[in-house]
Write a protein that binds this DNA or RNA. Structure first.
Lengths: 159, 159
DNA sequence: ATCCCTGGCGAAACAAACTTGCATTTGGGA
DNA sequence: TCCCAAATGCAAGTTTGTTTCGCCAGGGAT
């Protein structure tokens, strides 16, 4: 929830570059890296958290280690694009834990989903629940990930 | 870098569920939530970090706040699928900062990319660099995200 | 030009969380 | 039953993060 129009200077960007790689970095070290005192770093981080520049602080879990070794992409095309039905789909996808990411897109598809499952049986069950039972899905295309070459939420930062 | 075959019990899973939502949660509170002492929580976290169950701890940055408001999906199809050329593509995509995520997939495409850019001009320049100059890209399909409905790396946890 | 006010910074005191060592308990196997 | 290994809880020590304070620079009004 953004609070005010943030304007980031090069200090903020340098701090973000460190935090999006490892947010357990001590503020003292961040300060040394960007030439600022630790309290100044702390103030900037707090402000960026309040203004929503920093959306969250999370641990990244290896899916394979918790029994979800398969990552699948799905392009979903709806029958009807009525706003009401779009919203219903958004809500359903958001509420499904196996749906790790969901984007509403332009182009030949309406949604793109990133799904994490234990095995293909689980995926098959999920497709039935999400797509066949929906009555508003015209078709969907499945891409199974053989290699998670690059994974993350890292954003390129200017400077 | 996994060290040993990890086996997670329900305590570990409960801890992970908390950390992948907010890894700044004090260990004392985690302990209260899962009925364990703070040091026990700390030991388990450390072990999961060493065994690679926890792949990292990162701050999530709002792309729009740092001048990268556009998210784009790209399906890439190569001319040749020789292993050597596949590897070259993996390396190039990995090394490109705008490529936030890259997966090597089965199906009608070879790669799926998640790209973050400032504007469509930047995307156009990137396509030229990544695809047209490559001489190994048969075609690619672009999907521009209108709504990032659900974003994250959260993994569904049993229990 | 001076005064005042606002915002940011650095230094130090303070509080909280993290880490470590040790005794105890629990569970399995001989 | 006895013993050993692993994990837990407790308590102390250490690091980290947080707050408070005073200082300095920039802007606007008098």
């Amino acid at each position: 929830m953004p609070v005010s129009p943030p304007s980031l200077d090069s200090f903020d960007l340098a701090i973000l570059a460190i935090l999006q790689r490892d947010n357990t970095t001590p503020q003292r070290l961040i300060g040394e890296a960007v030439n600022l005192s630790a309290p100044a770093v702390q103030r900037r981080i707090k402000r960026m958290e309040q203004t929503g520049v920093i959306a969250g602080n999370v641990a990244v879990i290896e899916p394979a280690a918790v029994g979800q070794p398969i990552t699948i992409f799905v392009e979903v095309e709806l029958e009807s694009e009525r706003a009401e039905l779009i919203d219903a789909a958004k809500r359903q996808f958001s509420a499904t834990p196996e749906v790790q990411q969901c984007y509403y897109v332009t182009g030949e598809a309406d949604f793109i989903l990133v799904i994490t499952v234990a095995d293909m049986g689980a995926y098959e069950a999920l497709t039935r629940k999400l797509f066949f039972d929906s009555n508003n899905v015209r078709k969907f295309r499945t891409f199974v990930a053989m290699d998670r070459v690059k994974v993350g939420l890292t954003v390129p930062l200017p400077g």
